[in-house]
């Protein structure tokens, strides 16, 4: 009995270790294969740079890349915060007024069907060249998952819990903060997880159509000059940025919605 249990624990530890090693392992092997293929088939840098070329580019132009990264990061963060604010207010108004929901929801859905790449240049005409049109593009893309998920969270209240609140004599203004709002938080964070990642795409699109700074701008400028290694460096930074921000949202969820984890484990 005992040695078996010991073996079980050991194998579980090994299993967990393997799980942790999978992502870095996969990434490393992809890069190794990539590196080897590029040198094996003698692919020119302007066509497909090897990971080592990209690394060298990143190192040599560190300050240039860093400058543009900060610009893009600023657009992502501000755009995301605007989306969060607008999204929460919209969801709140829609859950309190059925008429408002019916009036506004079609527009919210429609806003997502219009290609953002078509709106972005118009924004340049309307609000100018600075950071504002980028923030609008980011917010426009990322408010949608926040609104939709938060709405679902407000509505996904156990009907028995709702009845219980009513038998206490609770008003709508008591039911909302004490039941609907906390109940919606896990949903809100699901929306935020999606929103933060698409925010990065939004910022690049915003820069793509007209900018003087940012990683998107850097890419549009580098492509005609066949600086493919720089384009790749920018793409890697963008992915890295997305992953870091995504993990930040998850960390924030652990702080604000600690019960979500324990409830998950229970079921």
């Amino acid at each position: 009995m005992k040695p078996e249990a010991g073996f079980g624990v050991a194998s579980r530890d090994i299993g967990r270790l393997v799980l942790y090693l999978i992502p870095p392992g996969i990434i490393t092997s992809v890069f190794v294969i990539w590196e080897l293929s590029v040198s094996l088939f003698d692919v020119p840098v302007w066509l497909l740079p090897a990971p080592s070329d990209i690394l060298v580019e990143g190192k040599e132009n560190y300050s240039l890349l860093w400058h543009h990264t900060l610009v893009t990061l600023k657009e992502v963060v501000f755009g995301f915060l605007v989306a969060l604010g607008v999204g929460l207010v919209l969801a709140f108004c829609m859950v309190f007024s059925r008429a408002f929901e019916r009036a506004v929801y079609p527009f919210i859905v429609a806003s997502q069907t219009i290609p953002i790449i078509a709106i972005a240049p118009l924004l340049l005409i309307w609000v100018g060249y600075g950071i504002t049109p980028k923030i609008i593009v980011v917010a426009l893309i990322s408010f949608f998952p926040i609104v939709v998920n938060t709405m679902d969270g407000f509505k996904a209240v156990d009907s028995d819990a709702m009845n219980m609140m009513r038998t206490f004599g609770a008003s709508r203004w008591q039911i909302f903060p004490k039941l609907q709002l906390p109940n919606s938080l896990p949903y809100l964070f699901t929306g935020m997880k999606i929103a933060i990642v698409v925010s990065v795409i939004g910022a690049v699109i915003g820069e793509w159509v007209g900018a003087s700074e940012g990683l998107g701008y850097l890419m549009t400028r580098s492509i005609p000059q066949f600086q493919t290694d720089r384009v790749f460096a920018a793409m890697f930074i963008l992915s890295f940025l997305g992953i870091i921000l995504f993990m930040l949202v998850i960390a924030l969820r652990r702080v604000i919605v600690p019960w979500y984890q324990s409830e998950e484990y229970k079921s």
């Binding site: 028995d160 819990a161 009845n163 038998t167 206490f168 004599g169 004490k178 019960w259």
Partner: peptide
């Protein structure tokens, strides 16, 4: 009558937060 009669359902309905 809402608010005048205490009500206890089968589910405990404790709020995890």
């Amino acid at each position: 009558r809402l608010g005048r009669v205490g009500y206890m359902p089968q589910k405990d309905l404790l709020f995890p937060w």
